[in-house]
Write a protein that binds this DNA or RNA. Structure first.
Lengths: 233, 233
DNA sequence: TGTACATCAGTGAACGCGCGTTCACTGATGTAC
DNA sequence: TGTACATCAGTGAACGCGCGTTCACTGATGTAC
C-alpha cells in the first residue's frame, strides 16, 4: 500500500504552503514571511498551518533546505545539458547556471546567501550540511572534468596554514585533487557568490549596466585558471 | 558664533541614538532595530526619538550612510599606515583592511552588503552615490599605485560589450586606466565581498577553519594580477 | 452495504506582545529687553 | 541683573496593526466490523 489519499493531500498542502510563502517573499521581501499572511493568501486561518509546521521557524528551515536542493538540482541539470565529451563545457554551463538560478529565484538565493528572515534562528548543523553538499557537487564536477582533460593546472604556492586546512577539508569530504585546485574552487565559489549577490541586490548596476557580461567573462577566466582551454566566444 | 550649546547637545543625542541602534543590532541582529527598543535602552520614551529622526527609515538610512563613511575611513586609514614609497604595500594593506573592518563591524557591513532591515525601503540614489565613492577610492588608489610602479599588467581580452560598459564607467567616474585594470578592480571588489560575506555570515567556516588565510592569499594573487610584485610572506 | 467509531484538517475566538506613529502636554533651557 | 517670553526636548497615553501561538470546537473523511 502506497501513501494514503489523506497523506497525499497532506503533502500537497505542505507544498502549497511553502509555495505561497515563496510567492509572498518574492512580492514583498523576505521580511514579509508570516503565518497570518500565508494563511490569508490560502483562504485559511493561521492556526490551520500548525497542522503542517510545528513552528514558524520550522517552515523557514524547510524553505531554506528546499532552496539548497533546488539550487543543486539546477546546477546538476545545467551540467547535463552539455555532452559528456565536452567536460569543460559542462563545467562552464554549471557555473553560468549558478548565476541564472539566483536571478530567477532571488528570494531563494537570498535565503541561502545570508539574508535572514527577521527573528529566525537557523539550525546550523542541518543547514551547514546542505551547504556542504553543494560544494561537494562542484568539487566532484571539477574533479571529473580534470580527469577527462589533459589540463595541467598552474601550481599555486600555498602557505603552510592554508595547506593544512585544505588537506583536512579534502580528507573530511573525500576530495581527491591537487590542493591548488581545491583552493581555486573554494575561492571561486566565494567570488561567484559575491558577484551574484551584488547583482541580485542591485548593488553593482549603478556601475555596470550588464553585470552578466562581467560574470561570464570571469567564469571563463576561472575555468582557464584550472588549466582548461576555453573557447573565446 | 559656532554651533550653540543646544545644537551641540542635539547632535550628541543624534549620535547616541545611532550608536545605541548599532549596539542593539550587534546584540540581536539587524531585525532588532526598533524605535521602542532604542528609546528603552536610552531611558527615553519612543516619541522622543522623533525629535531627531522624522521616521524609522530615516534613521536606517543615516546608519547606512554612516557605515559607508566609516568603511571608507577605515580603508583610507589603512592605506596611510604604509609609506608612500611602498605603493604596492599600501594597496595590499587597504584590501586586507576591507575584511578586517567587516569583521570588526559585522552589523554595519551587513547593512552595506545587502542585508536589509525588515520593511526598510532604501533611497537608491543616495545610497548608490555612497557606494560609488568607495569604488572611486579603490580605483584611484590602484591608479596611483600603478603610476608609481613599473608594473606591466597582463592584457585581458574583453568582449565588445564589456569594453563598452567599462569605457562608459571610466568616463562617468573619471577613471584613467587601462580597461583591463578597471575590470580587475570591479571583479576583485565583488570577489572580496563574496569571501567576506561568507565569513561574516559563518557560511564558509564549516569548510575552512580560518577563512582569513584564504582571503589574504587571494588578496596577494589579485595584486599580482595587476602586474605588481608582492613579497611572499 | 450499512453502521459505529476514530482520525484529523480546519475554525473562530482569544492571548500577550511589540511595532511605528500621533497628539496634547510639561517643564527646563535659552533669548530679548 | 531681572523679568517676560519663545523655543523645544521629552512625556504619557493612546491608536491601529500584525505577529506567533493556544485552545476548545466542528465536521468531513477514512476505517472496522
Amino acid at each position: 500500500m502506497s501513501t494514503s489519499r489523506r497523506q497525499r493531500q497532506r503533502d500537497a498542502t505542505r507544498e502549497e504552503i511553502k509555495q505561497v510563502a515563496r510567492q509572498l517573499m518574492h512580492n514583498q521581501g523576505t521580511a514579509a514571511l508570516s503565518l497570518h499572511a500565508i494563511a490569508h493568501a490560502m483562504d485559511l486561518t493561521s492556526p490551520a498551518l500548525y497542522r503542517y509546521f510545528a513552528t514558524r521557524d520550522d517552515l523557514v528551515t524547510a524553505l531554506i533546505l528546499d532552496a539548497y536542493q533546488a539550487q543543486l538540482d539546477a546546477l546538476i541539470a545545467a551540467s547535463e545539458t552539455v555532452s559528456l565529451t565536452d567536460p569543460c563545457g559542462r563545467l562552464l554551463a554549471t557555473i553560468l547556471a549558478y548565476r541564472e538560478w539566483a536571478l530567477e529565484h532571488p528570494v531563494d538565493y537570498a535565503l541561502l546567501a545570508g539574508n535572514p528572515v527577521p527573528g529566525y534562528v537557523p539550525p546550523h548543523a542541518i543547514i551547514g550540511e546542505a551547504a556542504r553538499r553543494g560544494m561537494d557537487f562542484l568539487m566532484n564536477l571539477v574533479q571529473s572534468t580534470l580527469q577527462q582533460s589533459t589540463a595541467i593546472p598552474a601550481e599555486i604556492i600555498l602557505s603552510p596554514a592554508l595547506t593544512a586546512m585544505l588537506e583536512s577539508l579534502c580528507q573530511e569530504r573525500g576530495y581527491a585533487m591537487p590542493l591548488s585546485i581545491v583552493y581555486l574552487v573554494l575561492v571561486g565559489w566565494g567570488e561567484a557568490q559575491g558577484l551574484v549577490l551584488q547583482e541580485v541586490f542591485h548593488q553593482i548596476q549603478p556601475l555596470i549596466s550588464d553585470p552578466g557580461e562581467l560574470y561570464r567573462h570571469q567564469a571563463r577566466s576561472w575555468v582557464r585558471q584550472l588549466g582548461l582551454s576555453v573557447p573565446l566566444a
